[in-house]
Amino acid sequence: MNSKYLSMCLFVIVAVACLTISTGNLSAETSIRCATTTSLQNSGLLDYILPLFKKKTGIRVDAVAVGTGAALEIGKRGDADFVFVHAKDLELKAVQEGYFTNRMEFMYNDFIIVGPSNDPAKIKGIKKASEGFDKISKSGSLFISRGDNSGTHVKELSIWKDSGIHPKGQPWYLEAGQGMSKTLRLASEKSAYTLTDRSTWLADKDKPELTLLLEKDATLINYYSVMAVNPQKNPAAKYTEAMEFINWVTSKEGTDAIREFKDKAGNQLFYIIEKH
């Protein structure tokens, strides 16, 4: 270890710096930012359709994946150009407040209730989601809530409301405050019930030790929408490019791509709302 060696270390650091500065600006291509939900990222849909859109238009879409509640906040602050989310009531409220425009509800999948395979609350075979929740609460089995104001969390709270139960603060009700995959893993580790969207459930590679127990209730349909940040509220928003994406993703080309998107086992994860 002599000073020659040390100056070499310094040289490496300086070289990295120069590299950073020279290549700092990635390129001049147009890019727009999308605030979206973890389910669309974790299922792999975004990684599938965004390159197709880029190939067609040359516009790169940078996706920031958080819960729906947080995604709407990012859009409201003008830190994204459009949002791709799933919580109808929250969306309509934000549109009414003037933060978003051109809302298009065009795609869906569904929520399912999963739980430990021995099903201590005996909800298998039940048709109504609210009835299932009622049984879970009566059996005292653990239930994991997303607890992050995401679309799934909003749906879960509306089911609790239907069943007339106030779960908050109950010893069997745990709020994870995490994304869907992490919540599934938590439920698996703790042998607990939880509500999940089907695409995250199917796409999760490290299958948690849970079983699908309740599905196909009409209240469990999960609608996704895209909407542009209103340029009148946030003049810096790239409205034209955002609309280009919204028009593409709801066009035949975009919806066909979404229909074609499959998980590793070949399951279709998202469906398109057919126009009447």
Binding site: T38, Q41, N42, D62, A63, G179, S181, A203, D206
Partner: peptide, 22 residues
Amino acid sequence: GNILGVTRVMTTAIVLETDKGD
């Protein structure tokens, strides 16, 4: 924001890939 190809670095990628079970 952990954007693929733009702001995804080692630590944030580890968080996401662990989430995905990858």
